[in-house]
Design a protein around this nucleic acid. Structure first.
Lengths: 365, 365
DNA sequence: GTCGTTGCTGGTAGCGCTGTCAACGATCCT
DNA sequence: AGGATCGTTGACAGCGCTACCAGCAACGAC
């Protein structure tokens, strides 16, 4: 198998133009702005290109036009389910466009992000999608100076670099706490891992809500910088219980932690929700089919990705949205794990079937 | 904010060369093959480049050299945890190389794969990573004719296009069934979703093992083409139970399904492992901390990704591996869900801590 | 002392495409 | 009718880099 590079017998634009009987520049225009051609030439070029199997050389195009058709995407993690949903949205929304996605992983490091940003910007991307609003000063400056549209995703803030799509983690956490409060819970613990800026803002929301209710006690909070996992959820909950045995509920900064808490409760024979109520965050798929089903704050991750890519592409093509900040909101999906009315002793739960969603608290702005 | 593209005040190689007092071509060589320069010029070019903040123009490089520094990656799903681990490996292994990753999602469609392949190949990638060994004839032909190294990942077969990294899903499934058999299980069900080629081969392994043990009964098999989920695991298991109430164990084609089965058992108050043993596939993180902990077949997903990228890059640079097929093996991680010796009635399980791994059946080839 | 040989350097000539501008006929306006 | 405008087309000149080949000095072999 000849795996060494050789020059391939490629078809150039000039060949297409020749076959179509037009000048190369006209053929070129066909691919960029077909409307500019007369119908006759348009069809001639089109069939010539098809006949020869012409594929444009993107490198030459990029060099000549001084621009690429690449959308750079910076996300903090490739492992996290949350980002895989966002990514899917981005890829789906871009795959029928001319733009291709260039993905990089910042690993939750804003320094790494800065480095990658510099790299990306040097290649003159058509647009950029970056995660969050906590860039370094230097990154921020680069973004402001960047010569392309930019969308910040995952959360919203008051000071977008350009465009922004997300939701308020602060409000979402407050809504979760309000729900627990409404269910009569008073000693509400917080369990968080990784503590990236968005988790931190969820914690802020928790703290504010607890203070508003006059329930705040910092000993109810357990966090770690370790990356999140189901196992870690159990461990952190164990720590929390050891410190504050009297808690009646836990708000988990994400669903993996919540699942870990559920298992830990099972291990300790703590009844859910009778003794401990659990609320998670993100509403991953399994939350609806665990036993008991787990309350969570649903976030619109796929939509965030697809809306970001769509909005970015529009902006690249000159159609900037009138409103640059899009709040996708969240919904508290109330399930068994946080319902206070006692269920039967041995809860013959409502089937494996879709989530039990009693009048959920929605925040669709 | 000026978001319109303008020509940026860029530093060209010529500027660097001028500052360093060498010809452009010498400066060019510095970036491609520094050893070819005398030490004096090398340091001169290096400091000039640093001083000016030179960043090479990849489009120009690609155009002039007739090759790109892009590695194309084709995977079937962006959502599946399995692929996010593989991807992480690929990105990690490539991020300190000169190559960048171009990712596309085939959505489990080999036609889509063929289309994407055509697209990729037209851009003359430096290398290609494709998932699996079940390409269309047309795709296969394109791959064979491709002018770059190619790695097939996720499984191994006898007929690599070029290089191959994975493991035998067939053998892995057989090992899982052998484990259940060794635990005294005889009515072993199979639960599978999506039924992509790899899941199909796990099913083949199951069927073969069952036949070998004289236990085969096709009514023990429940599958669906629907995408996998925890919820679906519960539903399929419910179907299986309805059809064959006498089963004593279930082999799930992946861990999400296994978790769904676990929850369904809990809903029906079926004791695990006393009444039903469960074995999953992939050994995702949560398997070790569920209650009871879940037996699974560990696969080396991250390693698959990183090894594939590393091997590909070596091959691109001319150092082809002597052995083009790399079997990364698997390990049956035995946990509570498939142990036949009864545990205490109310199992105060061994902490939330790391997996209980009693002498696991490893297959490290 | 002549003839390679090796190591390093530079000149030339594009890679395939598009930006810019000019030219052309056809249409429109006054 | 003359000029302005529009829609359509083409010529030219690069974009920034590298492949290829030639040149030149230093060195060793015979």
């Amino acid at each position: 198998m000849g795996r060494n590079r050789t020059k391939s017998g490629k078809i150039r634009l000039a060949e297409v133009a020749e076959l179509a009987g037009v000048s190369p520049i006209t053929a070129s225009r066909f691919f960029r702005n077909p409307e500019a051609l007369s119908v006759a030439k348009r069809t001639r070029v089109e069939s010539a290109a098809r006949e020869l199997g012409y594929v444009p050389n993107l490198a030459a195009r990029a060099l000549a036009s001084q621009r690429t058709e690449v959308i750079g995407v910076l996300i903090p993690s490739l492992t996290n389910n949350v980002f895989s949903d966002v990514l899917r949205g981005i890829y789906d929304a871009s795959e029928n466009s001319r733009y291709s996605i260039q993905l990089s992983n910042t690993r939750y490091s804003i320094l790494q992000e800065e480095r990658l940003l510099r790299l990306f910007l040097a290649q003159k991307p058509a647009g950029l999608i970056v995660t969050g609003i906590d860039q370094t000063t230097e990154s921020r400056a680069m973004l402001e100076a960047a010569d392309c549209p930019i969308v910040q995703i995952m959360e919203i803030g008051s000071n977008p670099v350009d465009m922004m799509i997300g939701f308020s983690h602060f409000d979402a956490a407050r809504a979760a706490i309000a729900h627990l409060f409404a269910q009569g819970r008073r000693k509400i613990g917080f369990v968080g891992a990784r503590m990236d800026p968005r988790v931190q803002r969820r914690l802020d929301g928790y703290v504010t809500a607890m203070k508003d209710f006059g329930l705040y006690d910092q000993r109810l909070i357990v966090t770690t910088a370790m990356p999140t996992s189901v196992t870690l959820g159990g461990a952190l909950f164990a720590d929390l219980l050891a410190r504050e045995p009297g808690i009646d509920s836990v708000f988990c900064a994400n669903d993996d932690l919540a699942l870990g808490v559920l298992f830990e409760c099972r291990r300790r024979e703590i009844a859910i929700p009778d003794q401990i109520a659990i609320v998670g965050f993100n509403d991953l798929e399994f939350m609806a089919s665990s036993v008991p089903t787990l309350t969570s704050v649903r976030t619109n991750r796929y939509e965030m990705g697809s809306a970001a890519a769509a909005m970015l592409i529009e902006a690249i093509e000159g159609k900037r949205p009138e409103e640059p900040v899009l709040d996708l909101g969240f919904t508290v999906i109330e399930r068994q794990s946080s319902q206070t009315q006692r269920s039967a002793a041995s809860p013959r739960a409502p089937e494996w079937a879709p989530a039990v969603q009693n009048d959920s608290v929605t925040n669709d702005p």
